[in-house]
Deep mutational scan, measured.
Amino acid sequence: MPSETPQAEVGPTGCPHRSGPHSAKGSLEKGSPEDKEAKEPLWIRPDAPSRCTWQLGRPASESPHHHTAPAKSPKILPDILKKIGDTPMVRINKIGKKFGLKCELLAKCEFFNAGGSVKDRISLRMIEDAERDGTLKPGDTIIEPTSGNTGIGLALAAAVRGYRCIIVMPEKMSSEKVDVLRALGAEIVRTPTNARFDSPESHVGVAWRLKNEIPNSHILDQYRNASNPLAHYDTTADEILQQCDGKLDMLVASVGTGGTITGIARKLKEKCPGCRIIGVDPEGSILAEPEELNQTEQTTYEVEGIGYDFIPTVLDRTVVDKWFKSNDEEAFTFARMLIAQEGLLCGGSAGSTVAVAVKAAQELQEGQRCVVILPDSVRNYMTKFLSDRWMLQKGFLKEEDLTEKKPWWWHLRVQELGLSAPLTVLPTITCGHTIEILREKGFDQAPVVDEAGVILGMVTLGNMLSSLLAGKVQPSDQVGKVIYKQFKQIRLTDTLGRLSHILEMDHFALVV
């Protein structure tokens, strides 16, 4: 994948999101292997301009796509893939009243899908469409860049269908997702969380590099694949309309690839034109409109599966009536509230959605109805927002919020430890010299600072030695090549209790 991002070429006709291997024109390309080798690009942008032909009021008969309808489940399912879809609609009884809503608040519980998330729908649909058009064949390999849930859905379907599955996901995604993927037989590649989507090191860039190296491999490409919004247009939206008897006044959905909100909203605009569509985008993402909503100094966020630093091709923002931004604290607070007060075992993005819903639905009156999409299960986040310690460490809970008995030293300040200034190293000294210094002084790690004293990161003896043994660096290389740029900081005025929580999850903390 090139470091400079080429513009994806656009073909003359058809839909841009065809499933299957992508040609340089962004659509299915038939021909000899030699032709494909000559024409197939190194990668295709996940934010390529959409060429979708959908228009409100256009006859369904003019759609270029294969459409399906929700099917009634048999008493005995032939395999677990038949437990994807037909998820329950559940009334939220307490939270709406707590925040003064007059309307009825309903939750579409997508964590009841077989793999635990709304992404099971698009995973199965992308595979079925690729099999139907002859792209996927027995023994082929599926590769997908994902925040985890699409990966789980694909790995689940691949396990049943017999495909090899490789999932490329950023490091910030939970260990629970990784464990589930491994249990399903998927191979996992992790990428830096802070890598831009168009960087060769991003999950998108690495996935395309693997595709170019592995024979008979395919990126189904949830960011561009029409099967993504079509899955929701054909099934999720129809289920909502049936469950609500066609009567709903507002739908609120958090947005990642945009397939969920695009597919549902398009069908609702056709069948229930008075329904307002509300999009939820986390602070630090750029999906919301108008652009002024996205202006923030924050560039990272903890909530998973929603928000991006690019506009995915499948996201149709014209069908969203209003956007709201959400933050991590309210997302996790509301997710825990949904679990504790409503018994809905949902993930953090569901918290984002409901946090926005109780604001947006203030305009609705008694007798009206708001539906929220709860995308995934708490299963993926047992060591994250479900953990009091994690919430404390991230600053989303305060010590006084917890009532468990603490040891005698818990409320003492870090400054009472009488710490001395640490050994520091410059980023320009060599790895070999740094190892000598650390061994001589008896230290395992040291902060790396520039000549102005600005902290650049941390270097550890173990990481340097393993990097040297693996051949990633040489003793003569500058130590700046092996620094940890993500590390926890703590102030002298913070409590030892807070430091204790940090050290339970990290090997060190830097006192500043």
Rank of each mutant, 00 (worst) to 15 (best):
215 P>D: 09
21 P>A: 07
27 S>G: 11
22 H>F: 14
252 V>D: 11
199 S>M: 02
237 A>F: 02
77 L>C: 08
214 I>W: 05
76 I>S: 08
78 P>L: 12
11 G>Y: 15
242 Q>V: 09
34 E>R: 02
36 K>R: 14
220 L>I: 02
25 K>D: 13
15 C>R: 04
262 T>N: 07
69 A>R: 15
248 L>S: 04
104 E>F: 02
5 T>M: 02
239 E>L: 02
257 T>L: 06
222 Q>C: 02
53 T>I: 13
207 A>K: 07
131 E>G: 08
114 A>C: 02
191 T>S: 06
23 S>V: 02
138 P>D: 05
217 S>G: 09
191 T>G: 02
177 K>C: 02
238 D>T: 02
89 M>V: 10
147 S>Y: 07
268 L>K: 07
17 H>L: 13
66 H>K: 04
138 P>A: 06
175 S>D: 09
128 E>G: 04
219 I>D: 08
98 K>M: 13
222 Q>A: 06
19 S>V: 02
85 G>F: 02
45 R>K: 05
150 T>C: 02
175 S>N: 10
79 D>A: 02
159 A>P: 07
263 G>A: 02
233 Y>V: 02
39 K>C: 06
56 L>T: 10
124 L>W: 13
97 K>C: 05
95 I>P: 02
218 H>F: 10
58 R>Q: 12
143 I>W: 04
176 E>S: 08
255 V>I: 02
20 G>S: 07
177 K>G: 02
18 R>I: 15
18 R>Q: 13
73 S>L: 10
237 A>I: 02
149 N>I: 09
172 K>T: 04
49 P>L: 02
75 K>A: 12
177 K>S: 05
122 I>V: 02
255 V>F: 02
242 Q>C: 12
206 V>W: 06
116 G>V: 15
176 E>N: 02
237 A>C: 11
92 I>R: 02
234 D>S: 08
144 E>M: 02
129 D>F: 04
147 S>Q: 02
85 G>D: 15
2 P>S: 12
114 A>D: 07
261 I>L: 07
231 A>N: 07
276 R>G: 05
125 R>V: 04
108 K>F: 02
220 L>V: 02
190 R>K: 12
271 K>S: 13
239 E>V: 02
205 G>H: 06
224 R>P: 10
174 S>N: 02
258 G>S: 12
72 K>R: 10
30 K>C: 02
154 L>N: 02
205 G>W: 13
59 P>G: 02
202 S>T: 08
158 A>M: 02
16 P>S: 05
218 H>S: 02
212 N>H: 02
267 K>M: 12
129 D>E: 13
230 L>E: 14
25 K>R: 09
142 I>P: 07
203 H>C: 06
216 N>M: 02
211 K>C: 04
111 F>A: 06
131 E>F: 04
194 N>K: 14
199 S>A: 02
14 G>D: 11
97 K>F: 12
248 L>V: 15
114 A>Q: 11
68 T>P: 10
244 C>M: 02
48 A>F: 10
199 S>Y: 07
182 R>S: 08
35 D>N: 13
202 S>M: 02
102 K>G: 02
32 S>T: 06
2 P>E: 15
242 Q>P: 02
68 T>M: 04
76 I>C: 08
143 I>D: 10
147 S>D: 02
159 A>E: 09
241 L>D: 02
45 R>S: 09
36 K>D: 02
116 G>R: 11
126 M>G: 07
254 S>A: 05
124 L>F: 13
255 V>D: 02
134 G>A: 10
143 I>P: 02
23 S>L: 02
231 A>P: 12
115 G>E: 11
28 L>F: 02
101 L>V: 06
66 H>M: 10
92 I>L: 05
121 R>H: 02
213 E>A: 13
227 S>D: 15
63 S>E: 02
130 A>G: 10
181 L>S: 08
198 D>Y: 07
61 S>H: 02
144 E>W: 02
276 R>E: 02
129 D>P: 02
161 R>W: 07
262 T>R: 04
170 P>M: 08
255 V>P: 05
44 I>E: 15
238 D>L: 04
234 D>H: 02
237 A>T: 10
113 N>R: 02
159 A>S: 02
213 E>V: 10
26 G>A: 02
184 L>R: 05
244 C>T: 02
234 D>C: 02
93 N>Y: 06
67 H>A: 08
247 K>R: 11
29 E>T: 14
129 D>C: 06
96 G>T: 02
224 R>D: 02
155 A>M: 08
218 H>R: 13
209 R>D: 02
141 T>G: 05
67 H>S: 11
225 N>F: 04
90 V>N: 02
263 G>C: 02
183 A>I: 02
219 I>R: 07
175 S>A: 10
48 A>V: 10
102 K>L: 08
168 V>I: 08
63 S>N: 14
126 M>L: 08
241 L>I: 02
150 T>F: 12
270 E>R: 08
247 K>H: 15
55 Q>E: 10
21 P>Y: 02
4 E>L: 09
64 P>F: 11
128 E>M: 13
232 H>R: 06
116 G>D: 10
252 V>E: 15
101 L>G: 02
221 D>N: 11
17 H>C: 02
6 P>R: 02
185 G>L: 02
260 T>F: 02
60 A>P: 02
235 T>I: 11
228 N>P: 05
196 R>E: 05
68 T>G: 15
108 K>A: 02
94 K>D: 02
129 D>R: 05
67 H>K: 12
5 T>D: 02
58 R>K: 12
171 E>V: 11
250 M>T: 02
176 E>W: 04
203 H>W: 05
251 L>A: 09
215 P>R: 05
112 F>Q: 08
119 K>G: 06
64 P>M: 08
99 F>S: 14
118 V>S: 07
260 T>P: 02
165 C>L: 07
203 H>F: 06
192 P>D: 10
64 P>Y: 02
244 C>I: 02
200 P>M: 11
20 G>I: 10
242 Q>I: 14
223 Y>M: 07
23 S>F: 10
68 T>L: 11
179 D>F: 02
10 V>A: 09
150 T>A: 02
235 T>G: 11
9 E>M: 02
67 H>P: 02
221 D>M: 05
212 N>S: 12
88 P>I: 09
40 E>S: 14
169 M>S: 02
85 G>M: 05
209 R>I: 09
104 E>R: 05
257 T>A: 08
259 G>V: 06
3 S>R: 13
88 P>V: 02
204 V>D: 02
141 T>L: 12
255 V>A: 06
197 F>C: 02
177 K>I: 02
89 M>P: 07
69 A>T: 10
154 L>G: 02
241 L>T: 02
240 I>W: 05
105 L>G: 05
73 S>A: 10
227 S>I: 07
207 A>L: 02
272 C>T: 09
190 R>T: 06
141 T>C: 12
103 C>S: 02
95 I>K: 02
141 T>S: 09
128 E>S: 07
39 K>V: 08
78 P>M: 02
261 I>R: 02
157 A>M: 09
224 R>S: 02
174 S>C: 02
101 L>F: 07
104 E>A: 10
237 A>L: 02
177 K>T: 02
68 T>F: 12
41 P>R: 02
132 R>C: 13
136 L>I: 09
135 T>V: 07
46 P>F: 05
27 S>Y: 07
224 R>F: 05
55 Q>M: 15
20 G>A: 13
198 D>V: 02
19 S>R: 07
80 I>D: 04
55 Q>P: 06
196 R>A: 05
115 G>V: 06
245 D>K: 02
43 W>Y: 11
205 G>F: 14
147 S>H: 02
200 P>V: 08
166 I>A: 02
62 E>N: 14
7 Q>P: 10
216 N>L: 06
253 A>R: 02
136 L>E: 02
105 L>T: 09
131 E>M: 02
45 R>Q: 09
182 R>P: 02
212 N>R: 14
141 T>K: 15
176 E>A: 04
92 I>V: 12
149 N>G: 08
268 L>S: 06
144 E>R: 04
267 K>C: 12
20 G>L: 11
245 D>A: 02
64 P>A: 10
133 D>G: 06
93 N>R: 04
48 A>L: 02
186 A>M: 02
266 R>Q: 02
219 I>W: 02
140 D>Q: 02
171 E>H: 10
25 K>F: 08
193 T>I: 09
62 E>L: 10
